[in-house]
Design a protein around this nucleic acid. Structure first.
Length: 450
DNA sequence: TTATGATGTCATCTC
DNA sequence: AAGAGATGACATCAT
């Protein structure tokens, strides 16, 4: 914007110093030097006060369409465009080199503002097969991964919908198999229970509700809000969505037991199972991640989710983040939480809100960039119009001067014949009285103060 | 291996 | 004073 403004200002400066560039070598030279070389001096600029009489009235010849934003320019251009001929092409295009020179950095600037939205494409999941094999067979490896410190894991935070889940049926199947293989042997063999668990955890994407896109599985029956980490928001309508796949199901199927157990049985009962969830996640993440990491938006558990799980936070993260402060405090009052839990809950709330704020901030930033890009385009159009009108103005001005010179020579010739003026034209200068009258004054008299 | 974009998080400011 | 939102800066991850 600043650059464009400077360009526009530079144009006005150009207009103020016209004859240095544009017309000094033009076809009007035989006449113009008469006015500029002191053949006769004009103590007041002759063009402006005399121009209205130079032609039979304004004739608008410019056929371009000007934007509304520049009416004054249009008026100038049309009023100055008198009976004289249209400007030559080399006049109207005079600004082009400047324009190009100035456009280049602007275009370079805009080149960085690419909104192609080129998606990175679906994640590669071809490594999941091997990951699954290892998940099913590698208990030793699992236990090794179990001990991985939490802080070494992703800092990706909550997945509240900022990243559109990427569909991967294979991903789902593999994840489900991994879950079944590891959890059935730990007491989750009941098929109905398993289905309920998977279904239960599919509710998790309702955390996406503040975002623009929604998950398709809202048709699944939501469990009571107090029984899941991922309840449906209180005021969130049940909307049928059209997505055909449920890309996050791997995460939820893998993680279902721990969460389900936590909230069905209350805190304190899910230790090993929660650990098995983390183990499964950790194994999937590390083993599969080496070659084919799961999509970021599909990461099994966020750091805060894992921490909440570890500290047995007895209510869902969604409520922690999205409840109004009064309701949130009321929620906290319903439970007896230790300091660590309270700190974690408040951190989760702060981070969750800030994450949404950051998303909004970035969205606004992009919108601002798009808006400024549009303004820049408009300014470019205006600039081109100004350049074109400036050239036409210069042309009209030159023609007016030429006309005035001819008129002046003609009048002087007439006066000299009628009044018997003793000197040639160059011995006189023009002076204008307060009433606008033009006087022919002898230079000698003028110098003498007469 | 490096560059780049997307996203989360923290610190800080403002309201 | 506390909470929430906005935003720059930085880290991390995926591509």
């Amino acid at each position: 914007m600043d650059l464009t403004w400077l360009e526009l200002m530079s144009i006005t400066e150009e207009f103020e110093t016209p004859s240095e560039h544009q017309f000094e070598s033009s076809s009007y030279q035989p006449v113009e030097p008469a006015a500029t070389m002191g053949t006769f001096g004009i103590s007041q600029s002759p063009a402006e006060p005399l121009l209205p009489s130079c032609g039979p009235g304004p004739v608008t010849t410019y056929d371009g369409s000007f934007p509304d934003a520049m009416p004054s320019c249009q008026r100038v251009g049309s009023s100055m465009e008198t009976l004289y001929e249209r400007p030559a092409l080399h006049l109207t295009t005079r600004g082009v080199p400047n324009q190009n020179a100035l456009q280049s950095p602007l275009m370079n600037l805009l080149d960085h503002l690419s909104f192609t939205g080129a998606s990175s494409g679906p994640p590669r999941l071809d490594g999941m097969g091997s990951a699954q094999v290892r998940l099913a067979a590698g208990h030793r490896e699992t236990s090794k991964l179990q001990s991985a410190p939490d802080d070494l894991e992703s800092d990706s935070g909550l997945s509240l919908g900022s990243t559109p889940p990427l569909a991967s049926p294979g991903h789902m199947v593999t994840g489900g198999a991994a879950y079944v293989g590891s959890e059935v042997t730990q007491g989750y063999g009941d098929r109905e229970h398993l289905e309920n668990t998977a279904e239960h955890c599919r509710v998790r994407p309702d955390l996406y509700y503040p975002m623009e896109y929604q998950h398709p599985i809202s048709s699944y029956p939501y469990p009571p809000a107090s029984s899941s980490y991922y309840p449906v928001p209180d005021n969130y309508p049940m909307i049928q969505h059209q997505r055909l796949v449920q890309p996050s199901s791997l995460k939820h199927q893998i993680l279902a037991p721990g969460f389900h157990d936590l909230h069905l049985n209350g805190p304190g009962l899910s230790g090993n199972r929660g650990a098995s969830c983390r183990t499964t996640y950790g194994k999937q993440k590390i083993v599969a991640g080496a070659s084919v990491a799961p999509p970021r938006g599909d990461s099994p558990l966020s750091r805060d989710e894992r921490r909440a799980l570890a500290l047995k936070i007895p209510f869902p993260l969604e409520r922690i983040i999205n409840l109004p402060v009064d309701d949130f405090n009321e929620l906290l009052a319903q439970y007896t939480l230790n300091d660590a839990q309270l700190t974690l809950v408040r951190d989760i709330r702060r981070r969750g809100k800030n994450k949404v704020a950051a998303q909004n901030c970035r969205k606004r930033k992009l919108e601002n960039i798009v808006h400024l890009e549009g303004e820049l385009s408009q300014l470019r159009v205006q600039r081109e119009h100004l350049i074109r009108e400036g050239a036409e103005f210069q042309h009209s001005l030159a023609l007016a001067r030429r006309h005035l010179s001819d008129l002046y020579a003609e009048v002087f010739s007439q006066l000299r014949d009628e009044e018997g003026l003793p000197y040639s034209l160059e011995h006189y200068s023009l002076q204008q009285a307060n009433d606008g009258s033009i006087f022919l004054v002898s230079r000698n008299a003028a110098e003498a103060g007469d």
